[in-house]
Amino acid sequence: MLFVLILLNLIFITSTNGSWHQLDGIEYYIEYTAVIGVDKAKEGCKGMNAILAVVKSQRIQDLLVKNIDITKLTGQPYSFYIGLSRTSPITLQWSDGTTTDTSVFTYWDCSDDIYDSSKLCVTMGWDGGLNGFKWKIEYCNGKHRSICQRNIATTAKAPTTSTLTTTLLKITSTAIATEQTVTSEVSLVSIQQSTESKPTTNNNFDTLERCS
C-alpha cells in the first residue's frame, strides 16, 4: 500500500523553479554568475536546454528588467549576454535565427557605436555601470552575466482512472511474482472500493538604428 501511495505522488507531482520567469510560452533564466566569453554563456544555457535570450519586444525587455535582482549585482559586470550577435557589418542575428531586419524591437544605448564591426556580441546593460539595461555592442570575449530562454514544457495530462488501475494491477502482479508475502487481498483493497472482483470505473479525474 505504501508503494502505491508513493507511485501516485510521483505521477501528480509538479516541479517548479523560482529562477525561471515565464511569458507567452517562453521562460527566461537570469544567470548572475559572470563568465568570460559568449561561448561560455551559450554553454551555460545549453546545459539547461536553453539558448541565449531573444528579446524581440518591449514586454520581454520589461519582464527581464523587472526580474533582475539588483542586490545580486554587487560589482562589475552590470551586463548580461543576450542572444544577439553580428553576422555582417550591417546585420545582427538572434540565437533563434531571425535578424534585426525582421525584428520590430531594439533597445540600443544611444551612446554606443552599433556599427563598430570589431564588436560582434550584444549585452543587455553596460559592464561598467547601470544604464537601465539598454543594449550595448561588445567584444565576444568580455566578462558578462547572461540571460537564457527555453520553451515552457507542455504539462502532461493527468492519467485517467482506468490508466491508474491498469498500472496498479501491473505493480501488484510484479510484487506477487517476486515476493510471495504480497497478497491479492492487499492489492484489491488499494484498487477497489467494493468487494466486487471486477474493478469499478470512476470518472472523477476529470531595427539597427533604433536606440533609447
Rank of each mutant, 00 (worst) to 15 (best):
D112M: 13
C121A: 15
Y107I: 14
S117G: 02
D112I: 11
M124L: 09
D112S: 14
L130D: 09
T100W: 10
G128K: 12
F105T: 03
L130S: 07
V122I: 15
D127K: 15
T99D: 11
G129I: 09
N131S: 15
D109W: 01
T106L: 14
G128Y: 13
S103N: 10
G132D: 13
T99L: 08
T123Y: 08
D113K: 04
Y107W: 12
L130A: 04
K119Y: 10
D116F: 03
G129H: 12
V122T: 13
T99H: 05
S118C: 01
D113W: 07
G129T: 14
L130P: 08
C121Y: 04
S118A: 08
S117Y: 10
T102F: 04
S117N: 15
W108I: 03
D101R: 11
W126M: 12
G128C: 06
G128F: 11
V122S: 09
T98D: 07
S111M: 15
V104W: 00
T106S: 09
Y107V: 14
C121V: 11
V104K: 05
F133K: 00
L120G: 02
D116K: 09
S117L: 01
C121D: 12
G125N: 02
D109F: 06
S118D: 02
S111K: 15
N131Q: 06
K119S: 08
D127V: 12
G125S: 09
K119I: 01
S103W: 00
D116M: 07
F105G: 10
